[in-house]
């Protein structure tokens, strides 16, 4: 497990794919394949993302904070910012808990 992944996520956090997984794009889907033991609850578990999950994932470039990711999505999809902030935080919290994402504190 990377040291970063235990950090609780906030809108200021910056999240990136963990070194513990491999993310593949297959036929337009993102498939997340565990690399090390302990990701997921079963020995052969993989993960896929729905469209919203993919839209968030593709914005996790190591530069944008989660708040900036939510803003970007709100602009593109013309959706309420507060709703998207909650969605992005929910997504990032679950994915860091699963060690699929690694989070670090963003810019002060």
């Amino acid at each position: 497990m990377t040291a970063e992944s235990n950090v609780g996520v906030t809108l200021e956090s910056i999240c990136v794919p963990s070194d513990d997984i491999v993310a593949r794009e297959i036929e337009g889907d993102i498939v997340i394949v565990p690399l090390v033991a302990g990701i997921g609850d079963m020995d052969d578990e993989l993960f896929t993302l729905n469209e919203t999950g993919q839209a968030i994932w593709q914005r996790l470039d190591g530069e944008k904070s989660l708040g900036e990711v939510a803003t970007s999505l709100a602009e593109e999809f013309e959706a309420p910012l507060e709703k998207l902030q909650a969605d992005v935080l929910g997504f990032a919290s679950e994915m860091t808990r699963q060690r699929i994402l690694a989070a670090r504190a963003g810019r002060a």
């Binding site: 079963m42 999950g53 969605d87 679950e94 699963q98």
Partner: peptide, 19 residues
């Protein structure tokens, strides 16, 4: 279901579409 955005699968849902 894990969240609304993530699904746990034992194989990719569209694996059959792989070449």
């Amino acid at each position: 279901p894990v969240t609304d955005f993530v699904r746990r699968v034992t194989r990719p849902v569209k694996a059959v579409a792989s070449r």
